[in-house]
Simulated scan of single mutants.
Amino acid sequence: MRPVMRHLPPSVVAAILLAASPALADAPKVVASIKPVHSLVAAVMEGVAEPALIVRGAASPHTYAMKPSDAKALAAADLVFWVGPELESFLDKPLKANAKKATSVELLEAPGVTLLDAREGGAWEAHDHGHKHDHGHAHGEGHGHEEVNTHVWLDPANARAMVAAIAEALSAKDPANAAAYTVNAGRTARSIDALDAELKAALAPVAGKPFVVFHDAYQYFEAHYGLNGVGAITVNPERRPSAKRLSEIRARITGLGAACVFAEPQFEPALVDTIVDGTRAKKGVLDPEGAELKDGPGLYPALMRGIAASLKDCLGS
């Protein structure tokens, strides 16, 4: 970078680099699987090109079915960013069949991403966040992906590591715009740091209060901010929980005095009504993927703020 540019704000540097680049029209065709991943990719690509998104709107990767337009996007793609087959299982075979020329980037494998073991059963011990696995390119010995929680973006430290991996993959595929990707990645990482500090302050007053979630999507968020999730209504959101599971969760709510039970916009809210009936727990909604948020670079911070606000509003009232 030229010496005079070191003294300019990052946004100005990015604008200069983008204006000077002759290769914007030749930017790679990029596809992202789910909205949080798409948001981070879009932030790194801002000003260069816009990535395509597969799982749109309120759809869930747990229940998604590929459309012909998705197959067409994969066939044209140069890069595909996804968490991995453990989360987006619907994408595993189409990537092999349709995205033959694309580089596939599994962000669960990104250097610096810390993984947490999936929790067993519907009721957990307080602050049971499993074992951490600092991830370079392999897990700890004997540790398979099927054993980990895949909602890695809900830890801001993981989001920063994902941004770095996204920028590296884009730069390798598109060296002409590498400087712009680097500047955008730096700006995005700094914004995640500021967001993290904001959320830590906001959530500190409710850190010890027990709550129940619809499914175990929030372990990374809980662990990072010291929150007290005590159970999930369902282990697999694609399957309705058994009567035994519902009875166990109700006992957990009563025994621990759980303050809130949280539904999700993508799944059946009537289950939450059944769970809280006859208890003192209140109902709330948490959204781990931004179902009702606008796609793009702003979705990730809005998603994280939305989860924090829902937790604070329900647990703090």
Rank of each mutant, 00 (worst) to 15 (best):
A138Q: 04
A97I: 13
V105H: 07
A59P: 11
H127E: 11
R119P: 08
L91R: 04
V48E: 02
A76H: 07
F81P: 05
H38E: 09
N98T: 13
R56M: 10
E50A: 12
P94M: 07
E120Y: 01
T103G: 11
I34W: 04
N98E: 15
L53G: 03
G112T: 03
F90Y: 09
V37S: 04
A73C: 06
R56T: 14
A42Y: 10
K67F: 01
P36S: 09
H38D: 11
E88F: 01
H129I: 08
G57A: 09
V113D: 03
Y64I: 06
E109K: 14
E125I: 15
A99S: 12
S33V: 12
D78I: 03
G84M: 06
K96D: 14
H38W: 08
A118V: 06
A42F: 03
A75I: 11
G112Q: 00
A77D: 08
V105Q: 06
P94S: 08
K100Y: 03
V83A: 06
H127K: 10
E109G: 05
M45D: 00
E50K: 12
G121K: 06
F81S: 08
A58H: 12
G130W: 14
L107T: 01
D134A: 14
W124L: 13
A118Q: 11
V41S: 08
E86I: 04
K101C: 13
F81Y: 10
L107V: 01
D117A: 15
G122F: 13
W124T: 13
A59Q: 10
S39M: 05
E46V: 07
D78R: 09
L115H: 15
K67A: 05
A123C: 12
H62E: 15
K101H: 11
T63K: 09
V41D: 10
A118R: 14
L91W: 05
G130D: 11
A118T: 15
A76E: 15
R119C: 10
V41L: 08
G47D: 02
A73K: 07
P36F: 06
V113K: 07
L107Q: 02
E125Y: 07
A138D: 04
V48I: 10
L91N: 09
V44H: 08
V55K: 04
K93F: 12
A110H: 01
Y64T: 10
L87W: 06
D128A: 12
P111F: 06
G121P: 07
P94T: 13
A52E: 14
E106P: 03
H129G: 07
A97Y: 14
E109W: 00
P36G: 07
A97D: 15
A42C: 04
E106I: 00
S33R: 10
G112H: 01
K72C: 05
D92S: 12
A110F: 00
A99I: 06
E88M: 02
L116W: 13
G84Y: 00
K101E: 12
A52D: 13
A75D: 08
A102D: 14
K132H: 15
K96V: 05
G130R: 09
M66T: 11
K100V: 14
G47H: 00
L107A: 02
